[in-house]
Design a protein around this nucleic acid. Structure first.
Lengths: 248, 248
DNA sequence: CGCTGGATGTCGCAG
DNA sequence: CTGCGACGTCCAGCG
């Protein structure tokens, strides 16, 4: 049964010593399983930045794609981690289990040293399903292309992702008087950054098209902060309230 | 032993049916434990956006601070999640175990429905150590304040986080000819966004100080993208190569 | 690979 | 609470 490659029962180990934990984890890594460890450990990271975490109880997850995640009992984000593409290794050092996830380019190393492993588990997940999300910026774009009048009466979209020297414009079109219109779309309430982005596109197009061309810049989002609204006014840009989902 | 509040042994359960899993998980939530589940499940989310994930094997973590994380065998990010502050609940529905994490403001609901739980575990982590990171933007600022000549010979910092109508300037000072200098610091290679940010500060100060005041805007970062370099030149801003860590 | 911009970004801090 | 910007952001898409 243990040799059956299709065995999908999780393997577990309670309170192992370092060498038992290393054997278990080495096998899990070898088998491309999703491995988890819980116990008392220190964590060191060196790479794009550097960090050090003194001893405490944490949950460690090693994924077969090379991801490593170290979680405490608080926070949505891992306290330390390693990105996909790393190589996981483990070894015994004295009474400790040492788990390392290493990559080059950029050179990064995550070292977890367990003084005690309370529990270890390994799974073989099979998951081919993909996530289907609604309410994204892509949905907002779809809404606008299907019903351009939501932006303003007479608006006609001509292109999406139109290239400018400053980057790609979300939606490019004309108003009912034939003036060029540039839309910058955001799925949620926007701050000053989006105004800067829109302004860069408008200015790039003003330079790109023949001189004197009047170009309207419209920020399309559910709402806008006060600072962003002031910036819009300063730059002669406009705001159109519109949500990616219908209810708003 | 099970009643000992100082008991730090993880509690575990292999291949429970729905009601056993619900009892186990309900107890773990009640006890403010860090709970993990592995098994076959569907996931629904509705809140800021909405998403749906068909049946597959995933690892679910529920933290006592209200965080929920759903991980597949790939990727550093959870495929679905819920932020700290949620209330976790679980119940039996037919043969399924249903786990929900709910919050209001914003109204969000994550629903995980297990058709089979392969394994459940609950831990009582106590983690009082705090992480200490090196190589951040704060380190870059510290370097500059300790050794202003790194920016340019004769630079004198006068204030940090100086307020402007466009937001707070990272470092504010004077050059060796008495001209006002604004620094925008970035810990790593920068793109066009940072140039827009720096430009907003410079323009705000030009309006704020007496007319005709010449203000220099310096972007301080390890390096800069080509587009950003072009934008800098356009806006009459400057680039100073400097890294938050000494080796560069 | 590097650049660019989105994200249910998350997180921390100030008002 | 909102606003704002940093982040070892992560991530997909494109050249």
């Amino acid at each position: 049964m243990a040799d059956d490659p299709t065995d999908r029962t999780p393997r577990t180990l309670a309170a192992p010593d370092a060498s038992a934990a290393a054997a278990f984890l080495g096998d899990a890594i070898e088998r491309d399983a999703l491995a988890t460890l819980f116990g008392r450990c220190t964590v060191e990271y060196d790479g794009r930045a550097a960090s050090s975490l003194a001893s405490g109880d944490r949950h460690v997850m090693l994924k077969p794609d090379g991801t490593a995640l170290v979680h405490t009992d608080e926070g949505q984000q891992p306290v330390n981690w390693q990105s996909p593409g790393c190589a996981h290794e483990c070894r015994v050092d004295g009474d400790d289990l040492v788990v390392e996830s290493v990559r080059s380019s950029p050179a990064e190393r995550l070292t977890v040293r367990f003084s005690a492993v309370a529990f270890a588990a390994a799974f073989d997940p099979t998951d081919e399903e993909s996530l289907d999300v609604v309410g994204t910026e892509a949905d907002l774009k779809r809404r606008i292309l299907e019903e351009p009048g939501l932006v303003e009466s007479g608006f006609r979209p001509l292109a999406t992702e139109r290239r400018t020297p400053a980057g790609a414009v979300d939606v490019y079109g004309e108003d009912d008087e034939g003036r060029t219109v540039v839309l910058e779309l955001k799925r949620r309430r926007v701050g000053p950054d989006a105004v800067g982005q829109l302004n860069r596109y408008v200015e790039a197009l003003e330079r790109d098209l023949h001189a004197g061309a009047e170009i309207r810049g419209l920020l399309v989002a559910p709402s806008v902060t006060e600072r962003a609204r002031a910036l819009l006014a300063e730059e002669g840009l406009e705001f159109v309230p519109l949500s990616p989902r219908e209810e708003s």
